[in-house]
Simulated assay, not measured.
Amino acid sequence: MSDTEATVQDALDRGLFVTFEGGDGSGKSTQAALLERWLVDGGHTVMRTREPGGTEFGVEVREIVLHSRGFITPRAEALLYAADRAQHIATKVRPALHRGEIVIQDRYIDSSVAYQGSGRVLGADDIRSLSEWATENLVPDLTVLIDLDEKAARARLDSDHKRFDRLEAEENDFHQRVRQAFLDIAAADPERFVVVDGTLSPDEIATQVQARLEPLLRRD
């Protein structure tokens, strides 16, 4: 990002942007809800959202990309996620940040890099570039990666007795690539990430997330 782009982003985005990442079954949605409750109890204005599906357009994209009965090529899948992301950030996330709110989001660019870039083997750099273009380079203030072994995650999903979506239904080697990609992304950007052991209790995970977020809440 250029200095000019960074200045524009700083001027527009006065709130905080927190994203949750991890494999299917890692507990992201649970933690996003717990963080929202903690922040609201602390007097903060919070918007919790997700990708795909955070807008009316996103709901339609989510149905296509996760539940379509027809074959979707990997590149078409990546483009669908990018289209959802462009709409979501422009119409929902950036306005909330401009109002000074805290946005808590379940999945963002790192998910596409992990799932389409590594899981689908499309290439991390190309996928990241696509989403950065779609979002006009909006970067989270904090990303929480809940790391959980893919077999343990699958066991959790099995215990819920739910019908798997297209990505959840992929084989273990796909989910192994996704998990390793998340870990590699986090290792390359330690200032933005906090990596939490997904085998811990929900309360233990929430405590670690809160501790990492508190300094950002005190920033000018």
Results as ranks from 00 to 15, higher is better:
E56M: 08
S118N: 04
D141N: 14
D220A: 14
V196P: 06
Q105S: 10
L130H: 09
A124V: 01
V178Y: 09
L66W: 11
V103R: 02
D203I: 01
A211P: 06
H161Q: 12
D141Y: 06
S29H: 08
Q176R: 15
F17G: 02
F174E: 07
Y81G: 07
A124Q: 13
A152V: 09
F20M: 09
E168N: 05
A76L: 06
I205C: 12
S68T: 12
A152C: 08
V195C: 03
E60P: 00
A32P: 02
G123W: 11
L35R: 10
E171G: 07
V65I: 13
V195R: 08
R166L: 09
V40S: 12
Q9H: 15
G54C: 07
E101S: 13
V196S: 05
V209H: 01
I64M: 14
D165C: 03
V178K: 10
V209G: 01
K162H: 13
E170N: 05
R166Y: 06
L66F: 11
S112L: 02
K151R: 15
D189K: 13
D147G: 09
V93P: 09
G27P: 13
L35D: 07
Q180K: 13
E51C: 00
D160K: 14
D149G: 13
R179C: 08
D84Q: 08
S112N: 10
V139C: 03
R37S: 12
L35Y: 08
R219H: 05
E63G: 10
R218K: 13
T49M: 05
K162E: 14
D24N: 11
R62L: 01
E77R: 09
R107W: 08
I205W: 03
Q87L: 01
E150L: 01
A186Q: 04
A206F: 02
F182V: 02
A78F: 07
